[in-house]
Design a protein around this nucleic acid. Structure first.
Lengths: 180, 180
DNA sequence: GGATATTATTTTAAGCCTGAAATATTTTTT
DNA sequence: AAAAAATATTTCAGGCTTAAAATAATATCC
C-alpha cells in the first residue's frame, strides 16, 4: 500500500520515452482510479441502503433535481448523470411510485417531460445529502487540504484529456463516414 | 470546464478550518473523480463492443485470469474485481458458453471452483489487452509523465484513506454488536 | 399544407449486479 | 464419528443499465 509501484519510478536511466509503445503507467493509473471509485461507490451504496433504505441511482437522480428550482427534462438528467435516457425513465418510475418526484409534459413542447422533486422528495433528499456529505468527508479524511486541491486539479486535467480523446475519436468516426 | 471551482481556491483568508462542518471540497473532488471514471468506463465499453463485440465485465474477468498461470477460484476473482460471488458466476457462465474460460472443481477441496482461460480465451484476451492499453494511453494523453506520477501517488493516498475509513466504520459496527 | 426529418422519450431484450437464502463441502468441536 | 460451525459457490428476486427499435411530437422543407 505504501510502496510505490516499481513501474512508476522514473529516473534519468529509465525514461518513458525509452520504452516506446509501453503504456503500463497509464494502465496502472486507470486501475488505481477505478479501485478508488469502486470503493467509494460501494461504501456509499451500503450506507444509503442501511440508513435510508434507498439506492445510489435514486440518490444521484434526486441530487440533480434538487439543484434545479424549475425542474429538469429527462434528457438533461440523463446527460448530467451520463446514463441512458431509458435508465432515467426506469429510475424515475421508482421515485414516482414513492411520491418523491413529479413528472409532467412541458407546456410548450409535449415531447418533453419535466421532472421535479415533490415536497416529500426534497425533504427526504436534503436529509440524505447532509449525511452523504459527511460520509464523503470521512472517506477522504486521510488527505490534507493541499492534497485535495492538487488531486482536484489533476483530475481536472484528466477530465479535459478524456474529453479531448473522446472527441477526437468521434470526429474520426464521423470523418470515415459513419452515417447516423 | 477550464475554470477551477471557486470552492477550491483557498488562501490565507479562507481556510477550510474556518468553515466548520463544510466539506464541499471533498464532495466536488468525489464528483470529479466519478466523472473521470465514468467517462473512461463508457469509452472502453463502447470500444470493446465495437471492435471485439464483448463487454467490460468479461474483459475484466479475463484480465484477472490472464495474470494467473495456475488459475483462480471464484472467490479470488470476486475479491480482485470487487464484485459479488454471484456476479462472477454469472459472467463466467457467458465466458464458458463461448469457450473462453474453463471451470473445474479443485482436486483437494471440491467446494472450490478453479477458473482458467482456455487457449482461445488467452489468445482472444491478449489481442484485446494490447488495444486496451493503447486506448487508455490515448485517454490520458493530455497528462505528461510527472502529472501521471503525481496523480498515481495521490490516488494511492486516497486508496489508503478509503481503506482506513471503511475499516473504521466496520469496526464500529462490530463493536456495537452487529451479530453476523 | 403535407411529406419528411429531427428531437424527446419510452419500450424492449439482454446482460450486469447485488444481498440474502440455499446448497454443498470441509473443518472443528465434542 | 456425529454434530455443529465455517467456507465456497450458486440460486434467486429485484433493481440497474445499455443499445436499439418504437412511439410521439415538433420542426423543416418543398
Amino acid at each position: 500500500m505504501e510502496t510505490p509501484s516499481p513501474g512508476l519510478i522514473l529516473d534519468r536511466e529509465t525514461k518513458a520515452s525509452e520504452r516506446p509503445g509501453d503504456h503500463k503507467d497509464e494502465l496502472r493509473l486507470w486501475l488505481r482510479m477505478l479501485t478508488c471509485s469502486t470503493l467509494i461507490e460501494t461504501e456509499i451504496r451500503n450506507r444509503l441502503r442501511e440508513e435510508f433504505k434507498t439506492t445510489l441511482p435514486r440518490f444521484d437522480l434526486m441530487a440533480q433535481l434538487d439543484k434545479s428550482t424549475t425542474g429538469m427534462t429527462v434528457g438533461e438528467v440523463s446527460q448530467r448523470l451520463m446514463v441512458s435516457n431509458g435508465n432515467v425513465t426506469a429510475v424515475v418510475a421508482g421515485l414516482l411510485a414513492d411520491g418523491l418526484v413529479d413528472k409532467r409534459p412541458a407546456a410548450q413542447d409535449r415531447r418533453v417531460q419535466v421532472l421535479t422533486l415533490t415536497a416529500l422528495g426534497r425533504k427526504s433528499f436534503r436529509a440524505m445529502a447532509e449525511r452523504h456529505e459527511g460520509w464523503i468527508a470521512e472517506l477522504f479524511a486521510g488527505l490534507d487540504q493541499p492534497e485535495i486541491v492538487q488531486l482536484f486539479r489533476l483530475l481536472g486535467q484528466t477530465k479535459a484529456s478524456l474529453h479531448q480523446a473522446i472527441k477526437r475519436r468521434a470526429d474520426e468516426a464521423a470523418g470515415r463516414g459513419e452515417n447516423a
